[in-house]
Design a protein around this nucleic acid. Structure first.
Lengths: 222, 222
DNA sequence: ATGAACATACCAACTAGTCGGTATGTGCAG
DNA sequence: CTGCACATACCGACTAGTTGGTATGTTCAT
């Protein structure tokens, strides 16, 4: 093997990602990861303190990559329109294109993997995963708040409700996409959500919201 | 230990369910399950051929329980109203009450666990999980088709799209519920979906659908 | 030659699975 | 009712293989 390969550490993370997304974290052994990466134990324990450390670093690495991508989508949408609703739609379309063009043999969300194997991880890792999902939600909250501030919704909804809804839809869509093997599933769900937005923020009937300056609509239903 | 306990087999399945929902399938050892159930190896291999067999039986057991519950919710809704839209709402409310009242320390969907650990299972088990999710979707498809047949939707949607959307929303809601530790999360998502239904099937503006007899609306968006 | 970047050999703990044993039933002949 | 034959239900020690982790190299750039 060629010594001093550019980034052995990254190769380990990439191999781990593939295998963890295929079988889950617990079912993936260190030796298996190293076999896929063409390395041995020495390399692994040189870069990681242990498997627990890999778990944390893997999710942190993903969090950085994902947040970066999200900020990019948001920036692109921002550059192309000043209308908050159009901005959300552009953002969602960019995301749909991303998950749709993926030739990933085992699609899904790394945070969902961790969440469903949560009790095998340290509390710090669990908190980290929850924080990433919260950050993800927050990006949507900001966008939806802008929309609600400008367009009165046809029903009383909060930006947070909409944000949590689209995150849920995407997470759920990825599960169905994995289970069915239907690649366009997640994109289809995102499009359905855009249908909901269309109905919520279409002008003609401003039936519920009478004061357009309201920041947050109290929408606690029975 | 008292011999000839009523249903040792069931005790094993119940203990397995709790642990698998906490940590995932691979991270749960047979000994651990047996420890929780107060049994030993002999009992396990008397009732199950091995861990793979447990995996299959566990998901089959769940499928029976869940489908049974769904049929019950559907029957109750059927008995209380003849209106298809009201029926869907009653069904969803029953489901929301179910996931909301749950004091489950590790909420979530067993099929999602299997889906995210899928490649460690035999193809037969993967197919089984997909089939259960498809059955689940089919129940919704029937209900939504009745709604669409009676009420013209404000936007062109198919019963299947709506069915897959609510399944996605619930699956995604369960992930957020687990990650955040917020029990009412899944119920909130279901309520948001009901908002969408309200907007889709409210009378006042029949803007897109002009012929109310249409059975399936072609809704392939770009 | 010194330390970073790996490889190799090895270990203790745990894993699924086996197997002989034992207690408790159940069916049946007398 | 008794006693024998046999099946069922379960125990617990055992094994072979795998696991995460360590200890000790070896190579190479500086």
């Amino acid at each position: 093997m060629t010594r001093k390969s550019p980034d052995t550490r990254l190769r380990i993370l990439q191999a781990a990602r593939v295998l963890v997304m295929e079988k889950g974290f617990a079912a993936t052994s260190i030796d298996e990861i190293l076999g896929a990466a063409g390395l041995t134990k020495g390399a692994f324990f040189h870069y990681f303190k242990g498997k627990k450390d890999l778990a944390r670093e893997l999710v942190e690495w993903h969090a950085r990559k994902d947040l970066e991508m999200f900020e990019r989508f948001a920036a692109e949408a921002e550059a192309r329109t000043s209308d908050p609703l159009e901005k959300v739609v552009l953002f969602l379309e960019a995301f749909e294109a991303y998950v749709g063009n993926s030739d990933d043999p085992s699609p899904g969300c790394m945070y969902a993997v961790y969440t469903y194997e949560s009790m095998q991880f340290e509390p710090a890792v669990r908190d980290l995963v929850a924080d990433v999902l919260r950050q993800w939600t927050s990006i949507y909250v900001r966008m939806f708040q802008d929309v609600i501030d400008r367009y009165p919704p046809a029903l009383p909804v909060t930006a947070r409700q909409l944000a949590e809804m689209i995150v849920s839809i995407i997470e759920g869509g990825l599960i169905l996409q994995r289970a069915y093997g239907e690649v366009p599933m997640t994109g289809r769900q995102s499009k359905q959500f855009r249908n909901y937005l269309t109905l919520l923020f279409s002008e003609p009937s401003s039936r519920v919201q009478t004061n357009p300056s309201a920041e947050t609509a109290a929408a606690a239903a029975a």
